[in-house]
C-alpha cells in the first residue's frame, strides 16, 4: 500500500527534514505518526500525496512509483488518496454539500453519481441535515467532518490526515477520531499525524515516532510517548 525506501527530504537552504525513512504500511492499517514539532511529520505526509518530492529515495503508493510518476499523472495518484488538514481547507463560499460535491465535480463525475455519493458520504459523517450550511455556520468539529466527507467521497484507498484534531476541543476530537476509526473499519487505510496524546494512548494503533527526520520508534500497538 505505502512503502518508502531510504527517503530523504531536504528543503532549500536547510538541514534535511527527513533522513533515510524506511517504512511499509499495509492495506487497512491505521497508523499514528507522532513526534515533536519540526520532526518531519508533515513532510512525511506531504511526500505521500506528492505535494513534496523526495530529494532521494523511492516511494510506492498503491502501486504508483512516485519516482517515475509524471507531473501529468499526479491527479491520478491524488484521486486514490483523501487528504485531511488541521485547518479543514473548506471553500468558504460553498455550502457543505457543494464542498463535498466539489471533489467529484473536478474529476468529471455525472450529476447523478455526485448526488448519490455526496448523500451517502454526508450520512456517513452524520451531517446530512447540514447540507446547505456554509462552513462559517458550522462548528469546528462539523467543518472537519465535512472535510473528511470530501476526502472520502471519492472512495480513496487511503486517507492521510495532518493533525486533524489540532484545532478541536477534546470532545470534538474524540468524535472525529471515532469517525476515522469507522472509516478504517470499512477497509480504508489511515495515516494520521497527531499531537493528541490521550487518543493515541487509548486507541492502541500502530505508532510511528519521527524525531529529527528519523523513525525513532515503530510499534504495533504503540503509545504516544511524549510529555506534551
Amino acid at each position: 500500500m505505502i512503502e518508502m525506501y531510504d527517503v530523504w527530504k531536504t528543503y532549500p537552504n536547510s538541514e534535511p527534514a527527513l533522513q533515510g525513512i524506511n517504512v511499509k504500511i499495509d492495506k487497512g492499517e491505521f497508523v499514528y505518526v507522532v513526534g515533536p514539532s519540526g520532526a518531519g511529520k508533515s513532510t512525511f505526509i506531504k511526500l505521500m500525496y506528492r505535494e513534496e518530492k523526495p530529494s532521494k529515495g523511492t516511494i510506492f503508493i498503491n502501486n504508483f512509483n512516485l519516482e517515475k510518476l509524471k507531473e501529468r499523472k499526479i491527479p491520478l495518484l491524488r484521486r486514490q488518496i483523501g487528504v485531511v488538514f488541521q485547518d479543514f481547507k473548506l471553500l468558504s463560499r460553498k455550502t457543505a454539500w457543494e464542498n463535498v460535491a466539489f471533489a467529484l465535480e473536478v474529476i468529471g463525475a455525472t450529476g447523478k453519481r455526485i448526488r448519490s455519493r455526496v448523500k451517502e458520504t454526508m450520512d456517513m459523517v452524520g451531517l446530512a441535515d447540514k447540507a446547505d450550511a456554509l462552513p462559517s455556520q458550522l462548528s469546528g468539529g462539523q467543518q472537519q467532518r465535512i472535510a473528511i466527507a470530501r476526502a472520502l467521497v471519492n472512495s480513496p484507498a487511503v486517507i492521510i490526515a495532518d493533525e486533524p484534531t489540532g484545532n478541536l476541543d477534546p470532545e470534538n476530537s474524540w468524535e472525529i477520531m471515532n469517525l476515522f476509526n469507522q472509516i478504517n473499519q470499512r477497509g480504508t487505510t489511515i495515516v494520521m499525524a497527531t499531537h493528541n496524546r490521550d487518543i493515541v494512548n487509548t486507541m492502541k494503533k500502530r505508532v510511528i515516532a519521527i524525531e529529527q527526520g528519523h523513525i525513532a520508534r515503530d510499534e504495533k500497538r504503540g503509545v504516544y510517548g511524549y510529555d506534551d
Binding site: 501529468r72 484521486r79 471553500l91 468529471g108 471519492n154
Partner: peptide, 16 residues
C-alpha cells in the same frame, strides 16, 4: 485556495 483544493482532490491542470 480553490485551486489548491482542486489539485488536492485530483483535478487535472487542464480542468483547472
Amino acid at each position: 485556495r480553490e485551486i489548491e483544493i482542486m489539485k488536492l482532490v485530483g483535478a487535472t491542470n487542464n480542468f483547472i
